[in-house]
C-alpha cells in the first residue's frame, strides 16, 4: 500500500483529525478497492479500511466507492448510516463510544453518557472544539458482564461511574503513556 500523508487516523495518530482534500486520496482509496473488488460483500471492508486510513468517510469518497464498486450511492450511504462505527465527518483524536445496549442501559449507561456530554460540552455525534474527543453511542460491545461499558479508542472501560468521568478523560487528554485503566478486553 502506498504511503499517504494524512493526519487522520482513528485512534493512535498524534495529530487530531481535520478535513482532508478527497481528490488527494483517491489513488490510495483505489488501491483498497482493488484489494476487495472481486470479493462478495466488498463494501463494508472497503469502508472500514478507508475510514481507518482517513479517520472518516468524506461524501466525495463515498460516491467514488459507489461508482467503482457499481453499488448505488443510496445503498453505500444506507450502510454508512446504519452502522454507528462509520462517520462522514472528521472526528476527534479519541473516539468515545458509550454502550447503550440493554445491559449497559439498565446499569446506568445513560447517566454515564449524560456525564460525558456535560464534561465535554458536546452532543452525541459531535467533536470537541480542540478536536480531542468525539462522542458516539455503541450498541453492545459484547461485554455485558462489565456494564456499563465505555470504549475509548481500543480500550474497554468497565463499570464506569458518572462521577469518575473527569479522571477517565484526563488520561487521554494529556496523551502521555500513563496507564489508562482500560481492561485488556477488546470488543
Amino acid at each position: 500500500m502506498a504511503e499517504i500523508q494524512t493526519d487522520c487516523r482513528t485512534s493512535t495518530h498524534a495529530e487530531p483529525c481535520r478535513e482532508i482534500d478527497p481528490g488527494s486520496v483517491i489513488p490510495v482509496v483505489d488501491e483498497i478497492i482493488t484489494q476487495y473488488r472481486s470479493t462478495r460483500g466488498a463494501l463494508i471492508p472497503v469502508l472500514q479500511s478507508v475510514q481507518n486510513l482517513l479517520g472518516y468517510l468524506p461524501k466525495e469518497i463515498l460516491t467514488h466507492i459507489s461508482r467503482e464498486l457499481s453499488i448505488p450511492y443510496s445503498e453505500v450511504a444506507g450502510v454508512v448510516t446504519f452502522y454507528s462505527f462509520f462517520s462522514t465527518t472528521p472526528r476527534g483524536k479519541h473516539i468515545i463510544r458509550v454502550c447503550l445496549g440493554t445491559a449497559c442501559y439498565v446499569r446506568g449507561g445513560k447517566e454515564v453518557l449524560q456525564a460525558l456530554t456535560r464534561e465535554l460540552k458536546i452532543k452525541v455525534g459531535q467533536t470537541t472544539d480542540d478536536h480531542q474527543f468525539s462522542l458516539e453511542i455503541g450498541r453492545c460491545f459484547g461485554a455485558c458482564g462489565l456494564a456499563p461499558v465505555v470504549m475509548i479508542d481500543e480500550d474497554v472501560h468497565q463499570r464506569v461511574k458518572p462521577n469518575a468521568i473527569g479522571l477517565l478523560l484526563a488520561a487521554y487528554r494529556d496523551d502521555d503513556d500513563q496507564d489508562r485503566g482500560g481492561s485488556d478486553e477488546k470488543a
Binding site: K59, L62, P72, Y73, S74, E75, A77, G78, F82, T88
Partner: peptide
C-alpha cells in the same frame, strides 16, 4: 437497476430514500 432509494439510518430513525435522506433531485 437505478438504485435511487435505499433504507437510510437505523431503527426508529430509518427513512427510505436517496443517500443520507437527501431530496430526490440530488439522486440518480
Amino acid at each position: 437497476h437505478v438504485g435511487a432509494l435505499f433504507p437510510q439510518y437505523r431503527g426508529f430513525d430509518t427513512t427510505i430514500g436517496p443517500a443520507f435522506s437527501s431530496s430526490l433531485d440530488l439522486a440518480v
